[in-house]
Amino acid sequence: MERFARLADTFFDLEVMRRAFADLLTEGLVNTIYISASAMLFGLAGGLVFALMAISRRWWIRLPARAYVDLFRGLPAILVILLVGLGLPTAGIRPFGRYTPAYAILALSIIAAAYITEILRAGIQSVEKGQMEAARSLGMTYLQAMWLVIVPQGVRRVLPPLTNEFIILTKDSSLLFVLGLSLGERELYRIGQQVASRTGNYSAVMLAGLFYLLITIPLTRLVNYMDTRMREGKPGAGEEEPLELDPSASVPGGRR
C-alpha cells in the first residue's frame, strides 16, 4: 500500500499538477501544436516534392529523393534535432538567428518530410494509370496532371497515414527539450520535465501526457473513422471508386 501511496505522490500529485496547469495549457499546449502543425505543413510540402521526385522515370532525379528518405527515416529523431538545432548554428548557418523553435520546426519538418515522401509516393502510385492518361489526353502537362488530378486523389487515399504521421510528430516534439527552450518557447514535455528536475516529482509530466492525449486521441479516432469509411467505400471519404481499392492500400508507407 505504501508503494501505491508513493506512486500517487510522485506521479499523481494533484497539487503539483494544479501549479503546472496554467503553464502547460497556455504555453506548452500552444507551442506543441504550433511546432507540430508547422512541421507537418513544411513536411507535407517537402514530402510532396520528394514524392514526385521518387516516382520520376529518371534515375538521377529519383536518387536524391531515395537517399533523403533513407537517411532521415533511418536516423533517430533526436539526432536530427541536435544536428539541425545545434549543428547548423555551430557551422555558422543561422537562418533563424537565435530563435530556437524555428530550428526545432526545421528539424521535425526534415524528419516528417522523409516519412511523408513515402506515404505520398504510395498514395500517388495507387491512383489508376488511366487518370494520368486521361489528363494528358486532355492536353494537360505532366505537372498539371499531377497537381490537378493525381495528387488530390492520392492525398485523399493516404489521409489516415498522414494523420498518423501528425500524431507521431506531435509526440516527437517532446524531444526538442535537448535544444534548450526559454520561457515562452517551452512545449508540453519541457514544462513537465522542468518541474520534475526541480522537485523530483513527475506529476507535471503526467499532466503534460494528458495534454498530449487531448491532441492525439481525437486524431486517432479520426484516423480510425477515415479508415472505416474508406474500407466501406462511402462517398465523400476520399475514395470514390471503392471496388478498386485494396483495403491494405489505405495505409501505405506510414509509421506506426
Partner: peptide, 21 residues
C-alpha cells in the same frame, strides 16, 4: 535576461559554442 534551460551542461555549453546563447 532570457533564461534558457538545458537537460545537461554539455547541451548548454554546446548551445553557447554554437552562439545560440
Amino acid at each position: 535576461s532570457t533564461i534558457t534551460s538545458f537537460p545537461s551542461y554539455p547541451a548548454a555549453f554546446g548551445a553557447l559554442e554554437a552562439d545560440q546563447i
